[in-house]
Design a binder for these strands. Structure first.
Length: 125
DNA sequence: CTTTTGACGCGTA
DNA sequence: CTACGCGCCAAAA
C-alpha cells in the first residue's frame, strides 16, 4: 500500500462510495447522483469528490461514473476525461455525436439487481 | 485546530 | 438550447 493511499481503510464515506462503484457492471455507467443516493447520506458532489480521490492503482472502475447529463465530466486539472471516454468505449459504451451516453440504455439500475433482471427491464421498457 | 479544494445536480430565467 | 447561482460536506494539508 502506498503511503499516499493509506487513509480511508473502511470507515470513511469515500470507501463506502467506492464499494458502490465497484458494483457497476462493465459496459454500464452510473451518475454521481445515483452513487450518492445508493451510498446513503451522500450528495452528488460528495460522490464527485470521492472519485477525485481515487488512487491511481485502484480496483474502482471510476470511469463508469458520469454526470446526470450522460456526459463525461471535464475536471479541473488533467485530461483524464479523455481516457475515461476511451475506457468506456472499450467496454462497449456508445457515445453519440454530442459525446453523450444514452442513460436509458447504458445506465446502471443500482446495486441489488441482477444482470438478468436488468436485461429484462430493458426489453420490457 | 483552520483552510482549501473540488469528476455535481437542479431550479430558474 | 445556454447561463447563472446555490446547496452540500468530506478529506487532506
Amino acid at each position: 500500500m502506498h503511503p499516499s493511499e493509506t487513509s480511508s481503510d473502511g470507515s470513511g464515506l469515500h470507501e463506502r462510495i467506492y464499494e458502490i462503484v465497484r458494483q457497476i457492471p462493465e459496459g454500464r455507467v452510473a451518475t454521481y447522483g445515483q452513487i450518492a443516493r445508493w451510498a446513503g447520506r451522500c450528495t452528488a458532489r460528495m460522490a464527485g469528490y470521492a472519485m477525485a480521490a481515487v488512487p491511481f492503482s485502484s480496483d474502482v472502475p471510476w470511469q463508469r461514473v458520469i454526470n446526470s447529463k450522460g456526459e463525461v465530466s471535464t475536471r479541473s486539472h488533467g485530461d483524464g476525461h479523455v481516457e475515461q471516454r476511451d475506457l468506456l468505449e472499450a467496454e462497449g459504451v456508445v457515445f453519440n455525436a454530442r459525446g453523450r451516453v444514452d442513460l436509458g440504455q447504458y445506465g446502471w439500475s443500482g446495486p441489488g439487481i441482477s444482470e438478468q433482471e436488468m436485461n429484462d427491464l430493458l426489453w420490457r421498457g
